[in-house]
Amino acid sequence: MCLALFSGALDKLTAAGVILSGAAADDMDIDVYVLLQAARAFKKEIALNKDEIKLAENSHLREEFIDSLKKLNVKEWQDFFKEVKEITNAKFHICGLAGKIWGGETLDDFIDITDDIVGISEYITAAEEADIHLFI
């Protein structure tokens, strides 16, 4: 599976976590390309500050959304991604341009699930080769 993860919004990151979990349960190899807004969410200082991550839709329901996730014992998006990496061969690639836009120059600027910083050719090749290709 190849996922172009553009969004840095909490609801979409959570949806990505659920979908990637299903792929991991199926033992799929996964490549996630972390693009513009998602690259910001992957920056350490953003990811660790939960107030920085908004909802893509119905932003006025953010607290209700978070409360429901807690009640349902749903993992936070970063924990979904960590678990996916534990279960299957999953790589998270930061788009080099996206990283620079948000001031992320090196791998150390991003959360520890990040594997590398790549260019667009890596993404296009993975998208061509994947059986399933998604954009979130």
Partner: peptide
């Protein structure tokens, strides 16, 4: 029983 989708699936997988 304490988890929602995809929790049970991942628990089963493990």
């Amino acid at each position: 029983r304490g988890t929602a989708c995809p929790g049970p699936l991942l628990e089963a997988k493990k």
